[in-house]
């Protein structure tokens, strides 16, 4: 990543502030999803393990509602060609990835704060483990979402294709992150969670490497 990628990220950031392409969709989805869970649960007490699972369900579907915008908005507005004319593919991917990483972290922090405020059972015993899994889980989610967004951006039925293509790719990450969140809720030590942590870190490294290798072919028509 270099200054060109950072400039591209800044362009996306300024553009987002003016157009509210992704922020509004994400904010609405977070509020609606958490409200629906709250209404459906009612006065019932839900277990800690269920809240941990639902936490990542909300994160997955929120990501599906907004993270594809990085590339889809460029294709829909016809500005993808402009980017192709001013930047190398690696610069474009890095710029979009920085934007999505920041968006994922902001979005998931809001979800985590709302979640802990709304659900009594969502009490983290091992906060360091939760934070570690949260950071690596978010990075994996951002990398996968960015490369999948690039793949589906040129397709016709983008809205349907994005979650359908994302589900099998994100499944290993989501399942392991759910497990790590449950460990954090139960107060399990790092030592006992190292296998799951290794899976999440490996996932991130594999996805990042594969994305940079594939992006040239995806980006060029």
């Amino acid at each position: 990543m270099n200054s060109k990628s950072y400039s591209l990220f800044l362009k996306d950031f300024k553009s987002e502030l003016r157009t509210r392409y992704a922020i509004n969709a994400l904010a609405m989805f977070i509020i609606v999803a958490i409200s629906v869970i709250l209404f459906s649960v009612g006065n019932e007490k839900i277990s800690a393990s269920l809240t941990g699972g639902l936490f990542w369900v909300v994160i997955f579907f929120t990501a599906m509602s907004g993270l594809s915008r990085a590339f889809v908005s460029e294709e829909e507005r016809g500005t993808a060609l402009t980017l192709q004319l001013i930047a190398a593919p690696s610069t474009v991917f890095s710029g979009k990835l920085i934007f999505n990483i920041i968006l994922v972290f902001a979005m998931n922090t809001v979800i985590a704060v709302l979640y802990s405020a709304m659900f009594e059972a969502f009490v983290i015993q091992n906060f360091a483990l939760f934070l570690t899994s949260f950071v690596f889980g978010n990075i994996g989610l951002a990398v996968s979402s960015t490369i999948i967004a690039a793949i589906i951006a040129k397709a016709g039925a983008k809205g349907t294709l994005y979650p359908v293509l994302s589900f099998p790719i994100l499944l290993p990450l989501i399942l392991t992150s759910v497990q790590l969140t449950l460990f954090a809720i139960d107060g399990i030590s790092f030592e006992r969670a190292k296998f799951e942590l290794a899976i999440v870190v490996s996932y991130d490294v594999i996805m990042l490497t594969a994305s940079y290798m594939l992006f040239d072919f995806i980006w060029k028509e």
Binding site: N2, S3, K4, S7, L8, L10, K11, K14, S15, R18, T19, R77, G78, T79, L81, T82, L83, L85, I86, A87, T91, G95
Partner: peptide, 29 residues
């Protein structure tokens, strides 16, 4: 090394001309 003009080229409408051109210079490095 290339300058390209075409009817299907679209610049960023949410920015001014000056902002567009500055952004392009920065992204080009």
């Amino acid at each position: 090394h290339i300058g390209f003009v075409s009817p299907y080229l679209v610049l960023y409408e949410e920015f001014s001309t000056y902002e567009n051109l500055k952004l392009f210079a920065e992204i080009r490095g």
